[in-house]
Amino acid sequence: MLILEAQNLQKTYRSRRQVFTAVADVSLKLAAGEVLAFLGPNGAGKTTTIKMIAGLILPDSGWVMVAGRNPHQDVRALRAIGAVLEGNRNLYWRLTPIENLEYFGVLRGLSRRVAQQHSRDLIERFELGDKRQTLVQNLSRGMQQKLAIAVALMHDPQLLLLDEPTLGLDVEATESVKRLIREIAAEGRAILLTTHQLDIAEELSNRVAVINQGEIVVEEPTAELIRQFSDSAYLIQLEQPLDTLRASKITALGATVELQQITIRDPEILYSALEILRPLPIVTMGRQQANLTDIFLSFVRKP
């Protein structure tokens, strides 16, 4: 089931004499249970896009549908959206976790009784039980982030928007936030998370959309994207730089030679190339394992 659909979103910020297009053209689709990682360098337009989806920033053109409703026109769409926005922790610092959960639950349209029930459940599930009476300002950053996610889930939204959910967290907190995100997706919620940390995207997402300068440059299932890039190339490392005769023969086949390193993009020519190389000593030979970092850089660095 399609939970989120955004079509041709565009946003240009205009301030005194300055005109800046933060989002040029972004379209996204997200189904229940899916995690889409929205990946891009700083200033690429990730936060602006997320806020347009949440109804907090009005797009100049394009539209958003969440659970079949437009959040800019129909407040009922907001019941389907939970959001943890970037930077701050979206919580009242002078209240305890339980007070925050109950307050935001009611704010999001729950009755008091249901809000109390949900906050008890979430406290337990997010392992915040022994901190239930601690003021938020005295919680660790990791705890605050977990609580912020719990708050965003109080009204049981179908879509969860997470803007840089692991930014500034230590390793342990990052792990536990990652585990929670997986669990939440497994419940059948759609999750859109932005990050500039590639490992996070690689581990958590079903699909990756890379955004650069306000435009989506590639959107693929995460595994697919990694495979596409991994499949294509074999890397052969020789002990010595290749002599010119062999180098020209190999280049003629369609491979690339750089001193003692040969890259073969077309698997068909692998054995012909090996024939030419015989009997030179080979140090290593293998398929190039791409990770998201390489892929990301190859898209973002394109002129």
Binding site: K51, A54, G55, L56, V75, R76, L78, R79, I81, A83, L85, G87, N88, R89, N90, L91, Y92, W93, F104, L107, R108, G109, V151
Partner: peptide, 19 residues
């Protein structure tokens, strides 16, 4: 707006002036 709760208020189905 400094602590970040403000935007959460605008995500409420109640209108901001009601809140």
């Amino acid at each position: 707006s400094r602590t970040g709760t403000l935007e959460q208020l605008f995500l409420s189905p109640y209108s901001a002036s009601t809140v």
